[in-house]
Amino acid sequence: MTTLAAGFADPSHDAQRVFRSVLEAFSHPGRIVTVPAEAEMTGSLSAAATAFVLTVVDRETPLWLASDLDSEEVRTFVRFHTGAPIVADTGAATFALLTPSRQPMLDGFAIGTDPYPDRSATVVIQVPALRGGPSRTLRGPGINGSTTVTIAGLPDSFWSEWAANRALFPCGVDVVFAAGSELLALPRSIAVES
């Protein structure tokens, strides 16, 4: 029997505070933000990924789960707290949760269309840590000049995938990296140098 983890203690206000931290992350790509409200940990999902899901996912947004994050516990949690349909088709997902063990990581997700680039997926990649990995330089909207990220546990191949994603602009996916109770965002507008 699986147990159902609790969602936010104070749903409306917790979701608002988490959203503002996510918005800060999107507005300042590469900046590490700590999610200010935590839900109970669920299966293999990090606190940050769980809070993100509770904040933006609902019955209108199909969710795709990578096999290494998938479990009955996570499914029950997502269904109960968000009502989101869990889909097997990557192309149908509005949100996706995965780890770097999926290769290629961004393959198959919706990238939007030229008239409607917003019809694209947001991919949450759970990594071991947001610090201590190889250094990369980010440039683009939200960044005053340039900034550096050192995401740990991310294969180099991700960055060539990212360059290809960047080239699709304004289409493309947006990525959120989550580790522990921290996250950072990589919107599609951001160019990366090694």
């Binding site: 680039p117 917003d118 602009f169 919107p187 599609r188």
Partner: peptide
């Protein structure tokens, strides 16, 4: 909120 995140991304 989802629309806002998309707007910031593009």
């Amino acid at each position: 909120r989802r629309a806002i995140l998309k707007a910031v991304a593009v």
